[in-house]
């Protein structure tokens, strides 16, 4: 008798779990607003990437063409596949002191795996991950980028 009870119970339980599964998919089916697919080339103007998306490494500059990079080279050391090259130069400050500043922050997008290690390692927060993902170019030399803009300087408030 107990066995029969278990048998019937099994069937009812099985059916009810099946129905609850179908309720989930049915819920999706009748709500087309939940569709997550983006129609990419058409929605290019309104497309908004998620904040955590890693498109490329960029160096933000403010309106006065100032960045936060001290040229310390920690990002270069942390990069697992050598996508970053730091070229520094010595300048003379108005006080007459010699100072090492960044000349070129060279970033090879073609080699970068977007692992985020350089951004985690940067002590001054000079580089961040950008949202742009349309990286296709006709010539691979275009994938080598200089992140600091020409003539840019380090922000005065950044402590070295």
């Amino acid at each position: 008798m107990k066995a029969i009870f278990h048998y019937v119970n099994d069937i009812i339980k099985g059916l009810s779990t099946l129905v609850s599964g179908m309720a989930v998919t049915g819920h999706y089916f009748f709500r087309p607003k939940l569709i997550t697919t983006q129609q990419y080339p058409e929605n290019r103007s309104t497309l908004k990437m998620k904040e955590r998306f890693r498109g490329e490494v960029i160096m933000p500059h403010d309106t006065n063409n100032h960045h936060r990079c001290t040229g310390c080279g920690i990002c270069e050391m942390n990069c697992p596949n050598g996508s970053i090259e730091i070229i520094t130069k010595m300048i003379e400050t108005p006080e007459g002191k010699k100072k090492k500043v960044i000349d070129k922050h060279i970033y090879h997008l073609g080699m970068c795996t977007l692992c985020n290690l350089c951004i985690k390692a940067c002590p001054t927060g000079a580089i961040v991950m950008g949202q742009n993902f349309e990286h296709a170019v006709w010539d691979r030399s275009k994938l080598t980028k200089v992140l600091n803009q020409p003539g840019s300087e380090i922000m005065t408030e950044v402590k070295e």
Partner: peptide, 13 residues
């Protein structure tokens, strides 16, 4: 199309 809707996709468009 039905499969796509069940999986919150659009299907062939």
């Amino acid at each position: 199309k039905v499969c796509a809707l069940f999986q919150q996709r659009l299907g062939p468009m």
